[in-house]
Amino acid sequence: MQNVKIVVTGPFNAGKTEFIRSVSEIDVVSTERKITAEAEKIKSSTTVAMDFGRITVDDELVLYLFGTPGQKRFDFMWEILSEGMLGFVVLVDSARPETFREARGILETFRAYAPTPYVVAANKQDCDDAWEAEDIRLALRLDPQVKLLPCVASQKETVKTVLLELLYSILESIETPAD
């Protein structure tokens, strides 16, 4: 049996757990805990170690989706989670521009851990306050060739599109490896 993994990362409350939950065939194994810090009480609970979801491909291959903890004090987990990943998804909350800088920092950190392909998903595009994906690209200073995909983590189809685009990028990187 081969196990492969894709990491889903992003700032606190970007929607990582929901993203994984939308496509996982098992209930997401979650390590959510009640939030205690006042400043972080946007939601009632958060991921403190990791989430993981599973997609069985066939008898020999299983894909795991690992969600990283969003709060900065758990960033020691990131490097461990990034080991051996096929690629990663950076989830951005389109309606909270105050988290864009942090998202950029997380992206750079993961790029430093491993030169694997990645895509950026502009989540919560269904919110009234959501920034357009192309504006987010500029705010995050993403190169034009970096895939930035609009997404609503609760909608399975958009999550599938994000994962497929990442897999296409991985396929492309195998065919045309970087120097």
């Binding site: 081969q2 196990n3 492969v4 993994k5 496509v23 997609i55 069985t56 491909v57 066939d58 291959l61 894909l63 990034s82 080991e83 051996g84 096929l86 851990y113 491993a114 599938k160 994962l163 497929l164 897999l167 296409y168 991985i170 396929l171 195998i174 065919e175």
Partner: peptide, 24 residues
């Protein structure tokens, strides 16, 4: 980083990704 799934060769790796794509 050490890979949990070291691609044995390019074709094998491509086939693996293609299987993932089909499944998703």
């Amino acid at each position: 980083p050490p890979r949990s799934l070291p691609p044995v060769n390019k074709e094998e790796h491509k086939s693996l990704i293609q299987r993932l794509i089909n499944r998703i």
